[in-house]
Design a protein around this nucleic acid. Structure first.
Length: 677
RNA sequence: GCCCAGGUAGCUCAGUGGUAGAGCACCCCCUUGGUAAGGGGGAGGUCGUGAGUUCAAGUCUCAUCCUGGGCUCCA
């Protein structure tokens, strides 16, 4: 049974079996366009099974070869059917749910009478699938009445399918191969023999219909390609991705670590801290250019603040609460003296005692800061930047490496401005973001405008206004964008910046969000030209998102080979023998005096071992020191990125070379920055 | 939080009921060597934690913590 969304309206569903119409296969054959590897046909832009009848008036009928991009979802979804067939043969009594194709493979959800699937089960299922493929059974489409479908599913005792059937619109179609039948929209490959490269990859739990209140099903993931060669290439790419995993590199390169006493909370080791601080410095340099002012705000607040901001109670499940022992003693006395009689009284008693909350975001404190003084329109726009540490209690199953942690900092800022200034602020931020991403080597940036969600604060007129402002700014910069309906934050619509890393994985990092709610809640105002009070607009924005997550994405993007301006160590001095250690120390000092990050390997290891070690740590430059270098007052330089020995270079040239690379790419082009002010 | 898989030396891992292992890293010694691992020796572990079964538990059972793959949620 297909998940509707996987098909994305791509496929055509004939209303009836037109006995007189010719099939796509016949049409293609007649035109000599039917290849051995043709899996389906594209008819006027829609995908047809080869055995489906083509409308008489069709103007264009093109074959889809197994190696065309369009063929992959068809091959994968057909693989899902074959897997379900194999599973039901091997594990009688197992029921099926949804089995769509995904971006890189397919899955099928099962309700297994008992237990779950093991790795060995996957291998057995693969073998059974191979038999089904070997049998080369044809896929056949049948359009049936709702009653017939219901009767069939009842006879098969497929409860999930029955439930789904009632949600489907007519026509109802079934697909069969061999004896196996599935409620499905199609299309499919002509026969199971077309499935030449299938691999089952993993097993996982998944809720029926993705709702955590529903029963947990067993999901088997797999992937399929047109050929074993393409499958091997895919698996190879997964291997490459594994090598770049920031958790692996974080350990190998001594960047960060975790300890069970602080779950999901990273320790940045010295090398990682260097990069972390450089990321912050970089953002600070942009702030200087784009007119931001940095502030530092408290970590723990009276919960009164979070009630004002609305984070309590709506965000309570993600917040850490703090209590002093004095508070707790008070709570104890209160309970002894006046025992709470019901849930409400208990909540009240705790609320009075656990008076403090650890901030999960900076905005409330920035609102306080804004409100501390009387503001004039002349003060606006006010751009308040904050690298404050945030704590969010994330559920145990969702944390992951540095990408989802419980303590982190954002390159956060809030812009207070007038309604008239919103568009310009967003335009300027677009410039800032694109500059920053380019400096880190991310060129493939996608803009998504996320609009009002169902659960939200604020009036509809306010949402209308803010959504329009975001869209107009993006249009003004002539950037392509998409709209994500209902994906906005509860307090306002937002622009999200999605980018792809070096191996094509998508990430959402930066964002800018309009917020008409917090200024209201905090009763913020400014005195206008007309000498009356006005409500300012608040914009939340981040470039990197969280520094932690950006650290992870960047690490994987560069595969641990940080550019010179970010590398924890920019050059390693390697002596050929201990006789040259004295000279090495002098060079180290000279480099450090010039502000370079340098390490010296003065051990008694042989040069080969030292080079190996420095290469493993991905140090951009290696300076080998032997008699020749001492005599000539230079280094035998070796570059990581060019991966070659550059030969003897005098010290002054080494300094110049490092200085050249010791800044973000944009800083080497002098024209930048001014135009954005 | 839910389903599944893991947790043994700093790291990577072997060890299926009977005396805790290897390689690398670390320390010491020899070697002073010119572009990805020179040689020898030494030290290092209450096998995540807590209960239980057993004559005997890294190994079996239960609980719990942490990590990983998913689901749901998200910067």
């Amino acid at each position: 049974m297909c998940h509707k969304s996987c098909l994305d309206g791509l496929f055509y569903h004939p209303m009836t079996n037109e006995a007189t119409a010719r099939t796509a296969r016949e049409v293609l054959e007649e035109r000599g366009a039917l290849g051995k590897d043709t899996v389906a046909a594209r008819v006027d832009g829609k995908v047809y099974d080869l055995h489906s009848p083509v409308p008489n008036g069709a103007s264009e009928v093109k074959p889809i070869g197994a190696h065309d991009a369009d063929a992959l979802p068809i091959i994968r979804h057909s693989s899902a059917h074959v897997m379900a067939d194999a599973v039901q043969r091997l594990f009688p009594g197992t029921k099926v749910a949804f089995g769509p194709a995904t971006d890189d493979g397919f899955y099928y959800d099962y309700a297994k009478p008992e237990g779950s699937f093991t790795e060995e089960d996957l291998r057995a299922i693969e073998e059974k699938m191979a038999e089904i493929v070997e049998a080369d059974s044809s896929f056949r489409r049948e359009v049936v009445t709702r009653d017939d479908a219901r009767a069939l599913l009842q006879s098969l005792d497929e409860g999930f399918k029955l439930e789904h059937l009632e949600r489907l619109d007519d026509p109802i179609s079934l697909y069969r191969h061999g004896d196996w039948v599935d409620l499905c929209e199609g299309p499919h490959v002509p026969s199971t023999g077309f499935l030449k490269a299938v691999k089952l990859t993993s097993v996982a739990g998944a809720y029926w219909r993705g709702d955590e209140r529903n029963p947990m099903l067993q999901r088997i993931y797999g992937t399929a390609f047109a050929s074993p060669k393409a499958l091997r290439a895919h698996l190879k790419q997964l291997e490459e991705a594994k090598k770049r995993d920031h958790r692996k590199l974080g350990k190998e390169l001594k960047l960060f670590a975790f300890h069970p006493h602080a779950p999901a909370s990273p320790f940045f080791l010295p090398r990682g801290s260097t990069i972390y601080n450089l990321l912050e410095s970089y953002v600070r340099s942009l702030y200087a250019r784009y007119g931001y002012e940095e502030v530092i705000t408290p970590q723990i607040f009276d919960n009164e603040l979070f009630h004002t901001s609305g984070h309590l109670p709506s965000y309570a499940e993600n917040m850490y609460m703090a209590a002093t022992s004095e508070n707790l003693e008070k709570l104890q006395r209160r309970i002894e003296e006046r025992p709470p009689k019901n849930a409400e009284e208990w909540t009240q008693a705790f609320g009075e005692s656990l008076r403090f909350g650890v901030k999960p975001m900076n905005c409330p404190s920035h609102c306080l800061m804004y409100g501390m003084t009387k503001r004039s329109y002349r003060d606006l726009p006010m751009r308040m930047a904050d690298f404050g540490r945030l704590h969010r209690f994330e559920r145990s199953g969702v944390v992951q490496g540095l990408t989802r942690v419980r303590t982190f900092a954002q390159d956060d800022a809030h812009i207070f401005c007038t309604l008239d200034q919103v568009q310009d602020e967003i335009k300027s931020f677009l410039d800032l973001v694109y500059d920053a991403y380019r400096d880190f080597g991310f060129t493939d940036v996608r803009i998504v405008i996320a609009t009002r969600p169902e659960k939200r604060l604020g009036a509809d007129e306010v949402w209308d206004q803010s959504e329009l402002a975001l869209e107009e700014a993006v249009k003004a910069r002539e950037l392509p964008y998409e709209i994500a309906e209902g994906e906005g934050a509860f307090y306002g619509p937002k622009i999200e910046f999605h980018l792809k890393d070096a191996i094509g994985r998508p990430w959402q990092l930066g964002t800018i969000q309009a917020d008409f709610n917090l200024p209201e809640r905090f009763d913020l105002s400014y005195v206008g030209e007309d000498n009356t009070a006005h409500r300012p607009v608040m914009l939340h924005r981040a470039i990197l998102g969280s520094i932690e997550r950006f650290f992870a994405v960047l690490t994987e993007h560069v595969g641990g080979s940080f550019p010179v301006w970010l590398a924890p160590e920019q050059i390693a001095l390697l002596t050929v023998s201990e006789k040259f250690n004295e000279y090495a120390k002098n060079v180290q000092q000279e480099l450090e005096e010039r502000g370079f990050r340098v390490t010296a390997d003065l051990s008694s290891d042989k040069l080969g071992a030292k080079i190996r070690q420095a290469r493993l740590m991905r140090i951009p430059y290696l300076g080998v020191i032997g008699q020749k270098e001492v005599d000539g007052q230079g280094l035998a330089l070796r570059s990581r990125d060019e991966n070659k020995d550059l030969g003897f270079i005098p010290l002054s040239e080494v300094f110049d070379r490092l200085a050249q690379e010791n800044k973000p790419p944009s800083a080497t082009h002098s024209t930048r920055g001014d135009s954005h002010r």
